[in-house]
Design a protein around this nucleic acid. Sequence first.
DNA 1: TTGAAAGCGCTAACAC
DNA 2: GTGTTAGCGCTTTCAA
Lengths: 339, 339
Amino acid sequence: MSKPPVADHRHALTLRDVSEASGVSEMTVSRVLRSRGDVSDATRSKVLEAARALGYVPNKIAGALASQRVNLVAVIIPSLSNMVFPEVMTGISEVLDHTGLQPVVGVTNYAPDREEAVLYEMLSWRPSGVIIAGLEHTDAARAMMQNSGIPIVEIMDVDGTPIDAAVGISHRRAGRQMAEAIIAAGYRRIGFLGTMMPDDHRARKRLEGFTAALAAAGLSVADQEFYSGGSALLKGREMTQTILKRTPDLDFLYYSNDMIGAGGLLHCLEAGIDVPGKLGMAGFNGVDLLDGLPIQLATMDACRHEVGRIAAEIVAGQRASEVVELLPIMQPGATIRKA
Amino acid sequence: MSKPPVADHRHALTLRDVSEASGVSEMTVSRVLRSRGDVSDATRSKVLEAARALGYVPNKIAGALASQRVNLVAVIIPSLSNMVFPEVMTGISEVLDHTGLQPVVGVTNYAPDREEAVLYEMLSWRPSGVIIAGLEHTDAARAMMQNSGIPIVEIMDVDGTPIDAAVGISHRRAGRQMAEAIIAAGYRRIGFLGTMMPDDHRARKRLEGFTAALAAAGLSVADQEFYSGGSALLKGREMTQTILKRTPDLDFLYYSNDMIGAGGLLHCLEAGIDVPGKLGMAGFNGVDLLDGLPIQLATMDACRHEVGRIAAEIVAGQRASEVVELLPIMQPGATIRKA
DNA sequence: TTGAAAGCGCTAACAC
DNA sequence: GTGTTAGCGCTTTCAA
């Protein structure tokens, strides 16, 4: 690890520069720039003028140290590239924009030790709160959050024990509900297609709920297929072809996310398979990409936007710090036949 | 704008706490925790033990103020939700991970004043460098960057005058190349479909290069259609239907991004249109989603991953601060007939 | 190898 | 309405 060439701001402008340029004390300059306390219009404009002319940018590091307040919220998520977290981010930003708080994003790539490192790094900047995906963390990460003394909101999942607040859906319930809908529609030979990610706990819980509901009906997953990496749409295609070749009598395919589901759907339509007559299909997430497919894939909306909003409200102190369970919304689409 | 309930760390652990718990001076504790200078093994382990037991998390605010170094890199991008910037982020992270520098992401939603605000906010934390999308900024934003004294890398575009370094492709050239390929293939009645975003300068430049090349061949865009908001895949479908209804004799559709192109392609295939025989199609970006479509949409790769890597290398001081023009790679796919 | 003193740039608290 | 003083928690510098 080479030594980073970090910034050297020995020559950056300070309050003192603005103070000298305007003939006003540093303290009053500070007041003007933060719009705090009473300052006469005359001095205010003198200060603003000087600051603008110099191109002064306040040093938040010094400000934060002196005031003991940092207007940052750490947002820790597993990935940016799967269309699910951007929507959560949108919800978070919408709310935080009105509060003066700023989200700062950290990405963990579904790796627990990476999550721990990102969290440590972010907590060392003393943010005003943490919004973090999932309920599963390393012991050290959990301890750091517990000791931090700031609001911690775990999002996307409520199946487990939160540190403090949690906002999300029950993925077990989501899996169960989907299984029940599938069974009710008369499907019996059910295949599962998912990711090969042991640390995607939410996908795991959906599958658990799903198989539990199948079991309750005397059924089980007839075949399954997993992937990792690459274009999800393409992988969905390939896996679907594979699983149908291996187990041709499957009458339903449950995908752990919409993207592979969409790939599978495209494959089946091209292959001339009767969907949903001979073969039913469903994904998970409710991504808006589905709207553009030839027919609408059945899915379940994880309320991502709402999750982001509520988590932000908790962090911003506009809402009590508690567990908020949202109910995922079944979108039956056109790939499950009517019961 | 209500007053934010920012964190109050009056009771957080300090070096002094670790110092007292370990019986070692603050200074030496600091040395141990930063692995700087010579410290005996005995004291080192005493300190580490105490820090771990207490759950001490260093205060980077104080550290940054004292040392005048901040290991953060501001990354300012227009959007997270369009599959293009996540790949840039991946490239950035890959490089920065080895340097001790940390990317901090800010999103502007293609709004110049939002960009200015995000930049101001980030510069006030005195980052070690800035990676920012595009060459077009407000005068104030440009001035801030010029005065910052840190490396500024403008990415994704090289058609313009960079503040300092720039890494990207020429979108004018990309548009021109695509037009030339289309003309060479014998298409003559060409339609354009894009976003209604005046501040998406890269899309604008592609269209400029595109129309310039058409003009050079005595051609012009025969019809065009714009959209904003919603599911890009669905919008692509709808726009395509609309433009083909209005101007049925179009023989080529050029889309400003792959997502709407993919929607258009799905529409055409369903409508039984002969692609690429009667109608050619092309998008832009080279997103890997295209791999999963029934046939491969022609596109042009913007080298997003490479752009991220190179920008990060410049910011990290591993590479000279200069303009790096990458050449977009034409991916003819199966939606342009052979010349 | 370790410690003591000074100060990074700003703001809280208090005077005037 | 404005100024003064004393730190925030660390690291730099210098001394031991």
